[in-house]
Design a protein around this nucleic acid. Structure first.
Lengths: 336, 336
DNA sequence: GTGAAAGCGCTAACAC
DNA sequence: GTGTTAGCGCTTTCAC
């Protein structure tokens, strides 16, 4: 095994004790300026790297935070993790990444095998099902700080970071109305999900505000994929009184909507307006380009990490709920 | 501090020694069957989790591997990391993710601060510049196994995993030729990059094989972005003898090409064929849909991790070079 | 088959 | 300001 340089080696070379070396390496001790400089010089000469297993053992703290995500192969989560990484890098934390493929079993297995004692904290977006709440509570009780983002449980007392689903949806629909669309439908996500509900509520309240009809048959629930979007729109088109605009719960479904509308010879924008949610880069590439609500994915990642670090630093940090606003991006799909 | 259950607690409860507990937890020791069962039962009752800092300290091995990537916000790298994660999960390794944003300084800083003593191995795609080769050699010499993927240095003796750039490019161009295009251009990546060269060579050799002209002015080098693709095509179109087909080094540039061609009123496919490289999901969404060479991103990740694990397991594992083939995906952009 | 003890690399009292 | 020592949780000789 490659043996690495330790503080003992430095101490020996300099003929001083390991504790002096240890102290010299950190700022918070009274060490003779000269000694400190010698230690630092020798450390760098020997290319010394601290052994985090050792410091972790004694300090009960490694600089590791675990991040559990359903996927990384989409715009939203890959951007969130970039934000997390940004903050972690600045503050010298490592992130240990776990991907669950949105599988509940896998998620449970990851959580149950979490090496809690070599972790300082946990960042997680709970995947679709999630009644595994007691596990989280257990972890928190056992002293592992957790911050939730994106999809958050409301029964657990800890910090949470999310986008403003309600107002984003409201704004999207308001935009549709401003463009002159009057028969507005919503292709939504799975009914059980919290943020599906919030976006739907924003949709409904915007319609109400402008005294537009809220028809049950114009609200279709299904999954999040492009295919789901296509299927949902088919349902909408088969009605005798089809809508003239569609608010999709996310960009993927919105793109599915565009595809199906085009297939049916309907001119997107002019005849039927479409708006999404996320601002996935494809929304600028699809034809016509897709209007949408941009989610602050990077900021969500950064803010979550920042809050987690606060929880880690301060045992009794008072949990914060942070709601980050989205931003309306107007493109071709809502131009008449 | 939340104190976690240790083997000491188990030992005390059972009135046996910690060493027996330690042995009972692992298979390779002679422990009384009955004792072992009692230990296991107690461990599970107490919800015991091993402290990896401690095992890491004594075994000189944690189950952590670091992964260093320029980005995760694109299809290729996010899929690679999913493949890595898949293998790591199966074999019970954690992955520590570092993102460099393709910044050479950041990459250096990450590498120099790598906690080598709490790492079992390293997986890395070296970013554009990379003359930081001596650092890698140093790390390997100090006993940290490294496997390179995607962008690989050829001076370092260790395992490498890459896609078959040459043959992928060759096949792409062959397809264009089969479709009847005769004046084929290439919008390439930065000239210094190894895989840029390989794809260019595949392009050239395919043209030669079919005795088609290889014109210098039809090969344009620039960056990897959509904007680069747009700019490159502008250059091509301004020539008095413009090409009738374009092979792009990646899908992003191919999409840039499509955008610019459409802007100029040129019918993509019919008048000018376009083919990319990667099979980014957007290639199925853009209009017209984009023909491309699918990169085996997931397999690259998985294979890299697998090789790294072999290096970790066997000190003198003989390095392997693995080249994974791409696959031609025919879509609308190459239909006349 | 099991226990006692040393030690992995580091930090933190406690002396002086 | 610096050295000595114990100990973090675990594994591994070495006894018995």
């Amino acid at each position: 095994m490659g043996r690495f340089v330790t503080i003992k080696d430095i101490a020996k070379k300099l003929n001083i004790s390991v504790s002096t070396v240890s102290r010299a390496m950190r700022d918070k001790y009274d060490v003779n300026q000269e000694t400190r400089e010698k230690v630092l010089a020798m450390a760098s000469e020997l290319n010394y790297r601290p052994n985090f297993n050792a410091t972790g053992l004694v300090n009960q703290s490694t600089h590791n935070i675990a991040v559990i995500l359903p996927f990384v192969t989409n715009y939203y989560f890959s951007t969130v993790i970039t934000g997390i990484q940004e903050m972690a890098y600045q503050r010298n934390y490592n992130i240990i990444l776990h991907i669950t493929n949105d599988s509940p079993e896998r998620k449970l297995s990851v959580i149950n095998n979490l090496p809690v004692s070599s972790l300082d904290g946990l960042l997680i977006s709970i995947s679709s099902d999630s009644n595994a709440y007691k596990h989280f509570q257990q972890l928190i009780d056992s002293g592992l700080p957790i911050v939730f983002f994106d999809r958050v449980p409301d029964t657990i007392r800890t910090s949470k970071v999310m986008q403003d689903d309600y107002n984003g949806a409201f704004e999207a629909v308001e935009h549709l109305i401003a463009q002159g669309y009057k028969k507005i439908a919503h292709i939504a996500g799975p009914e059980v999900l919290d943020f599906t509900q919030k976006r739907k509520q924003g949709f409904i309240d915007a319609l109400k505000k402008y005294k537009l009809p809220v028809k049950k048959k114009w609200i279709v629930h299904s999954g999040f994929s492009q295919e789901d979007g296509q299927a949902d729109v088919m349902k909408l088109l088969q009605q005798k009184d089809p809508p003239d605009a569609i608010f999709a719960v996310n960009d993927r479904k919105a793109i599915g909507a565009i595809v199906t509308l085009k297939e049916k010879g309907i001119v997107v924008g002019k005849q039927v307006g479409v708006i999404g949610f996320t601002n996935d880069p494809v929304s600028a590439i699809v034809t016509p380009t897709l209007s949408t609500i941009a989610e602050p994915a990077f900021e969500i990642g950064k803010k979550s990490a920042e809050l987690l670090l606060k929880h880690i630093g301060k045992r009794n940090f008072i949990p914060e709920d942070v709601i980050l606003p989205g931003k309306l991006i107007v493109r071709e799909s809502t131009q008449r």
